[in-house]
Design a protein around this nucleic acid. Structure first.
Lengths: 358, 358
DNA sequence: TTGAAAGCGCTAACAG
DNA sequence: CTGTTAGCGCTTTCAA
C-alpha cells in the first residue's frame, strides 16, 4: 500500500496539487479561500498525508538534515565511542536540532573512504564534525559549500566554524593545581597527540605549568595512547614503577578513572599514594571512588552552539563563528597535598587553592 | 555553485543520462561498450559526481536510511541518554548499518508529537526502536509498512521483530546469587516499572527468586524511579534507614554505581556493610570501586542483530524474528557472603557459588 | 483565488 | 549498445 501523496489529497479534495501545497505550507504570498483551505486540511488529515521530505528537498535544495560525524576511537574498532563524552554531546546535538526542525544523520567516518561522501549523497544542509582528523580529509569539506562546524579541533581555516574549550588553559590549570598541592612528579596520560587535537593543547598546558614552576617535561612520564578506560589502566600499571611520580594528570575522565582503577590494582591508594586529576567532568568522575578532581566543561553548551551556529550560517550570517567555552576546576577527592618543598610561602592560607607564584 | 548532476556528466561525456546511470550503477542487465563505460567513469570522477540519494529514493522507493528512536530518560529533559548503555548500543547500530550501506537517522521521540512522523517524512526503510513506549505510540507503527525492530521491550505483536535478553531470568539469577550468598534483606532499585518494559521483567525475576526462597517482596524495599546515577544515589540514601537490608539489586549498572556512591556517602561500606549487584556490565561496572558484580549482556550483539533483522526483512524474509540473547553472571567485588541461616549444607564447597536448594 | 506546466536528479520500460 | 520518454512527490513561476 503506497503512501498517500499530495496528488491523492488533491484529487480527493477536488483541487490541484498546487493548492494543496499552498495550503499545507501556509504560503502567505498566496491567498486561498478559507473554505478551500479548510477542506484541503481536512482531507489531508483524514487521509493521513505526510509530506515526503526527500522529494521536497529536490526542489527546495534544502534537506533539513544535519550530518554528524563522530570519530571511531580506534580505526577498525566496532565502536565509535566507548567514551560517554560522545553520548552526552550527541544528546545535546539531537535535542537542539530537533527543536529547530532538523534531523540528524549520524555517521562514523567510513573506513578507508571519504567521510564526506555521506554528506554529499544525502545533501545535508550542514555538518558537525567532532574531533580532529587528518587535514587531507578536511580539504574535501571545502568542496561542500555548506556550513561546517568543527568541535574540538584546532584548525585555522576561515571557512569552518569552530567550537571548543580552552584546552591549553585547562591543562595549565589542572597541572597548576597539582603543583599547588606540592606535587612535582606529575605524569601525563592522554590520547594520541595529533597536531590539531585537543590532547596536544592539554599537553602544552601541562608543559607550560611545569616550566613555569621550573620543572621539565620528562619523556618517561608521558603515557599517550587511545582515549579509553583500558589505556588509563595500562598507563597506571606502567607508571607504578616510577617511585617519584606522586600525581597523574589524565587528559580525559575516562582515562582518569582507568588510572585510578589501575593504581588500585597495583595496590596503590588514591589519593594517599598517588593523586589523580581528570578532565571533562562526566558523571564518571563522581561514579569513580574516590570521586575525581577534574576540569569541568559544558558539553551541552557545545552541542547547542554547534546547532545554533549551523542555523545562523543557513540564515545567511556570513561571519565565521569561533566559540571557546570556559573550563573550571572541580575539586573532589582524588588529589591530596604532599609536603611542599622549601619554597613554601610565608602566609599559608589553610585549605585554599594556593596559587603558584614561583 | 551547484552540485554536479547526472545530466552534467552525461553532457560532458556525450551520452544520455540513462547511459550514465547504467554505467555508474553497474546494471548488469544492460550491456555497455567498455569504451563508453570507461569514458563515463572518467568524466564522473573528474567532475566529482556524487549521486543524490534523495532523488534516487524517489524512483527506487528505497532510502537506505534506517531510523533509530532512542528514548529520553525523562520527558522534557535535554538529554536522550545519560546512560552509557545507549552510547554503546548506538555505536553498534551505526557500525553495522554503515557496513551494509545504510545510514542512520537519529531521533528522540518528538515531544508531544508522533515519533513516527520523522520516519514517514524521510521514508526510512526500517526503524529500530529502543525501550518501551505507550502502546498507543506503537499503533502508529503499523501504518508504516516497513520493518520495525523493537529492542528491549515486551510487546506481543506479530508485526514487530523483537530483540532482547532474558530480563526475567537475569533478575532471577541476580537475586538467586544474592540469596546464595546468604542475603535475605534484598532491596530492589530500578527505573520505572511499565507494563512492557525490561524493568518489570527484572522485577518479576527478583520476585520469583525471593518467593522460591520462601521470602516475600516487601514494598518498602522497592525503589523505582528513573534509570540514572542520581536515582541510584537517592535510593541508597533512603534505604540506609532500613537496618535489615544487607544487599541491593540494582536493575541497571548506572543505578548500581549510584547506589554504591550513595551508600558510601552515608558511611556504609560496600560490600562489608551492604552488597550491591548491577545489571548490564557496562564499563562502569569496572570503573566503580569496588567493581560491580553484575549481569552481563552483549550490547553489541543486540545492535548487530537489529540491523541484520531489518536487512532480512527488506530482503523479503517474511517471518517475524524474535531474538533473546543470554545474560551471564559476572562476579566481581561488590557482593559478600553473610552468615547463612541454620539451613547450611553439609558439604560446603569453599568459595563456590552455592546453589540455593532450600 | 486557483491551476497548468516545468523542473529538481534520478531510474526504468521500451524502442531502436 | 544506447537514447527517448515517462514518472517518482513536491515546489514554483506564470497565466488565467
Amino acid at each position: 500500500m503506497r503512501r498517500v501523496s499530495i496528488k491523492d489529497v488533491a484529487r480527493e479534495a477536488g483541487v490541484s496539487t498546487t493548492t494543496v501545497s499552498y495550503v499545507l505550507n501556509e504560503i502567505t504570498t498566496q491567498t486561498i479561500s478559507s473554505e478551500t483551505s479548510r477542506r484541503v486540511r481536512e482531507v489531508a488529515k483524514r487521509m493521513g498525508y505526510v509530506p515526503n521530505l526527500n522529494a521536497r528537498s529536490l526542489t527546495s535544495r534544502k534537506t533539513n538534515l544535519i550530518g554528524i560525524v563522530i570519530p571511531q576511537t580506534e580505526p577498525g574498532r566496532e565502536f565509535m565511542f566507548d567514551n560517554p563524552f560522545y553520548g552526552a554531546l550527541l544528546s545535546s546535538l539531537e535535542f537542539n536540532a530537533r527543536r529547530n526542525g532538523y534531523h540528524l544523520l549520524l555517521t562514523g567516518p567510513a573506513s578507508g573512504q571519504s567521510y564526506i561522501g555521506v554528506a554529499r549523497n544525502r545533501g545535508v544542509d550542514g555538518i558537525v564534525i567532532v574531533g580532529s582528523y587528518p587535514s587531507s580529509s578536511l580539504d574535501e569539506l571545502h568542496q561542500l559549500s555548506i556550513p561546517v562546524v568543527l568541535i574540538d579541533t584546532y584548525v585555522t581555516d576561515e571557512s569552518f566554524h569552530t567550537i571548543g574549550i580552552n584546552d591549553r588553559q585547562g591543562g595549565l590549570l589542572a597541572t597548576e593545581y597539582l603543583l599547588s598541592r606540592g606535587h612535582r612528579g606529575i605524569a601525563f596520560v592522554s590520547g594520541g597527540i595529533s597536531e590539531h587535537g585537543v590532547m596536544r593543547q592539554r599537553f602544552l598546558g601541562y608543559q607550560e605549568a611545569l616550566e613555569a614552576a621550573g620543572l621539565q617535561v620528562r619523556e618517561e612520564r608521558l603515557y599517550t595512547g587511545e582515549v579509553s578506560f583500558q589505556h588509563g589502566m595500562q598507563a597506571a600499571r606502567e607508571l607504578c614503577s616510577q617511585q617519584d611520580i606522586t600525581a597523574v594528570f589524565a587528559a580525559a575522565d575516562i582515562l582518569g578513572v582507568g588510572v585510578v582503577k589501575g593504581l588500585r590494582q597495583q595496590g596503590r591508594r588514591v589519593p594517599e599514594d598517588v593523586s589523580v586529576m581528570g578532565f571533562d567532568d562526566l558523571d564518571l568522575a563522581q561514579i569513580c571512588d574516590p570521586s575525581l578532581t577534574t576540569m569541568r566543561q559544558d558539553i551541552a553548551a557545545k552541542g547547542r552552539q554547534a546547532i545554533l551556529t549551523i542555523l545562523d550560517a543557513l540564515d545567511g550570517k556570513p561571519d565565521k563563528q569561533e566559540w571557546i567555552f570556559p573550563v573550571d576546576l572541580v575539586v573532589r577527592d582524588s588529589v591530596r597535598s604532599v609536603g611542599r618543598p622549601v619554597t613554601a610561602q610565608k602566609h599559608r592560607r589553610p585549605d585554599s587553592g594556593e596559587e603558584l607564584n614561583e
